[in-house]
Design a protein around this nucleic acid. Structure first.
Lengths: 211, 211
DNA sequence: CCGCAATACGAGCTATCGCTCATATTATCC
DNA sequence: GGATAATATGAGCGATAGCTCGTATTGCGG
């Protein structure tokens, strides 16, 4: 293996034709990750799937890693969008209703492309440029902290940053694990139950009463 | 790459000499994973590190995967031991005290060999034989469920299995994330605070009062 | 319609990986 | 001490990976 190349592409796509090539490559990478797994996603295989030559691939992506980064970033953008929209909707809802909605959004986010999510979290080594790309984008912590801040008069005294860490990490783990490893929890009426439980977990933690 | 070999070793180690070889290989694998990462852990590199020939390696481990499985299983045994011991100690403690102790145990478990834990969770693809090897052994869910069952008269009415899922998953995620990505949370007095918060999270969720 | 830049192509290079196998060394038992 | 089983050795094979580079094709400005 030659020394690992840089992360910036050799060439920027400027014409429409090349922008389509770039898009096809990212798409193909995601498809292969989902259908055949990380190990099968060789650069030659990706180029073939995209209907693009290996040479063209390296015109726009300086390494295999860069391609995977592109897929991860696109996926993360989709996830954060789901959460952000939910947060927007609940701005003036009662606290518990709002939390319920956010928990449901977390589940929905994990269902955006669960097979891709699984491959990215279970098979993709967090190495090199992928090291700092978190699965559940760290932006979510900030958004949730702002949500708490807007309602801090209804909550017990809190270190908001720590509280956001506790809530987001817990909800993320519950929904992530449920979607990826406990499908039975999310079928039919059971899904409602999980939302109940997760909501209770968070509300009980943040509520002023008790203890 | 040849077709992937089986998971059972060709030969069982019977003499003391060969048992030492096996041990040296597992040790070397863990050392390389920690010091150089998953990608550097080639079978040739592991054999060299162990001071053993590549041929001998394949006498006892039929594939690279088998070596990694051995490391993972040993690590998981150590983690579960820490949790099991804590559970044994708190059998007749008041509920909240017991939960505190268990949260502390979860942190301790993640500190058994944090660098190895990080490599296993971030770089090691959960593929093939590794697919079903969970980081925080699933035995823990059962142990915690029994813990809850023994105290169910002090708790609100619960689906014990679901409650164990919620608690263990949350605590695992909090301690895992804190140890691996938030070192500042675990230094000095801050660690105490995290234990407080995690305890409150779990106790608030399980307590009969409120809501 | 020409000329040059942008884009596309793919044979093939180098590196390395997982793994085999023919051979050598060491231990055990009578 | 000789025979046999257990253990150890490492050169090297086949496969494939990531990636380069010389060449062909396409699109755009004039």
């Amino acid at each position: 293996m030659p020394l690992k190349a840089a992360m910036t592409p050799r060439k920027r796509a400027s014409q429409a034709r090349s922008r389509a090539t770039v898009e096809a490559l990212v798409e193909a990478t995601a498809r292969i990750l989902v259908r055949e797994g990380f190990d099968a996603a060789s650069t030659n295989r990706i180029a073939r799937e995209a209907g693009v030559s290996i040479g063209s691939l390296y015109q726009y992506f300086p390494s295999k890693e860069a391609l995977v980064v592109a897929v991860v970033e696109r996926h993360n953008r989709e996830l954060v969008t789901v959460v952000r929209e939910a947060l927007g909707e609940v701005a003036d809802q009662p606290f518990e209703v709002a939390v319920r909605r956010l928990v449901a959004a977390a589940i929905a986010a994990h269902r955006v492309d669960p097979k891709l999510h699984r491959v990215l979290s279970e098979q993709t080594p967090r190495t090199g440029a992928l090291e700092n790309v978190e699965a559940f984008n760290s932006e979510t912590y900030g958004l949730f902290q702002a949500f708490l801040d807007a309602r801090r008069d209804q909550l017990r005294p809190l270190d908001l940053e720590l509280a956001a860490f506790v809530c987001v990490t817990s909800i993320e783990a519950l929904t992530h694990t449920a979607v990826l490893h406990r499908p039975e929890i999310l079928s039919d009426a059971a899904a409602e139950t999980l939302v109940d439980e997760a909501t209770r977990l968070v509300v009980g933690y943040l509520a002023p009463a008790f203890m």
